[in-house]
């Protein structure tokens, strides 16, 4: 970062100095910064520690009495002495990690999306892996034609507003999703991927459904954020539907409150089969 502007570039901009609007100044500013763009997904991004993406559960831990009540969204459960946490309900508030650090910890940071709602419950159950493989290969067949360029249509179905910031961040120079052939599109008619945020507000059920119907096949739907997955802390109310899963057929689930741009990118790449092998669920 910040490798300075080569003399060659400086000289080549010289003829434009007289142009009003400081156009050459802007270009110089951009060049002076150097490359700030992440190498993800080609290489893992070094930025991450301390950045909440999801909560993990210690394997084989025996849960103490009443541990499930720590969670304000009911994401923690016990089944036959086995402790599990539903990342699709988790809002990353950190109550469990601070009260029971021996059982819960933050992590992973980035690759948190899944092709199955059930697989957001960790640690995975016995039959989960096989079912997951099936879903993954089915999705892969369906989206094979989308891999070279993906046009994304975002719809807000009752978010808190922070999800939109993180979606918009995907076009800033750090994430720069255009480099991966991912573009945001205005019209659903051009869209391959529907990226839905929000807790499933009843007032958006109709517009969301119509947007989905207007998209050509093949199409794929990503529920972005804990609110979109389950309604999060906002649900239940008379005005929300507990996430968007009952409003449109969701293919990929991205937890997070809000999901970070890395998590969103992971979800989008997972949806269209563009992750290098082994990249998440």
């Amino acid at each position: 970062m910040g490798r300075g502007v080569p003399d060659r570039v400086r000289r080549s901009l010289e003829p434009f100095r007289h142009i009003p609007g400081q156009a050459h100044m802007w270009v110089l500013r951009g060049l002076r910064e150097g490359i700030v763009t992440t190498a993800y997904p080609r290489r893992p991004d070094g930025y991450g520690p301390g950045w909440m993406g999801a909560v993990s559960v210690a394997e084989g831990a025996s849960p103490p009495q009443g541990v499930a009540e720590v969670c304000p969204t009911g994401a923690i459960s016990e089944e036959g002495g086995r402790l599990r946490l539903d990342r699709g309900r988790c809002i990353l508030c950190g109550r469990c990690t601070s009260r029971h650090p021996e059982l819960f910890r933050f992590g992973p940071d980035h690759e948190t999306a899944s092709v199955s709602r059930q697989a957001l419950v960790v640690p995975p159950g016995e039959d989960d892996e096989e079912a997951l493989g099936k879903v993954r290969s089915e999705l892969g067949r369906r989206v094979r034609s989308l891999r070279r360029s993906i046009h994304v249509r975002h719809v807000d179905a009752g978010s808190d507003g922070s999800e939109e910031w993180e979606v918009a961040a995907l076009t800033n120079p750090v994430y720069d999703v255009q480099r991966l052939g991912i573009f945001f599109t205005a019209t659903p008619r051009h869209a391959d991927l529907l990226l839905v945020t929000g807790a499933g507000a009843a007032g958006m059920a109709g517009p969301l459904r119509r947007t989905w119907e207007a998209m050509p096949d093949p199409k794929v739907v990503v529920a972005a954020g804990t609110d979109a997955v389950s309604g999060g802390l906002v649900h239940p109310t008379y005005a929300t539907r507990g996430g968007v899963g009952d409003l449109v057929p969701v293919d990929v689930w991205v937890p997070g409150s809000p999901p970070s741009p890395f998590s969103l990118l992971h979800g989008i790449l997972l949806a269209v089969g563009l992750l290098p092998s082994g990249g998440g669920a």
């Binding site: 009752g158 978010s159 929000g198 807790a199 507000a201 009843a202 958006m204 109310t237 005005a239 929300t240």
Partner: peptide
């Protein structure tokens, strides 16, 4: 109205911490 989430109602009955 589209993204009305019923928050006023949701607050009622929560613990002050939640």
């Amino acid at each position: 109205y589209h993204k009305h989430r019923g928050l006023s109602r949701r607050f009622c009955g929560l613990s002050v911490g939640d």
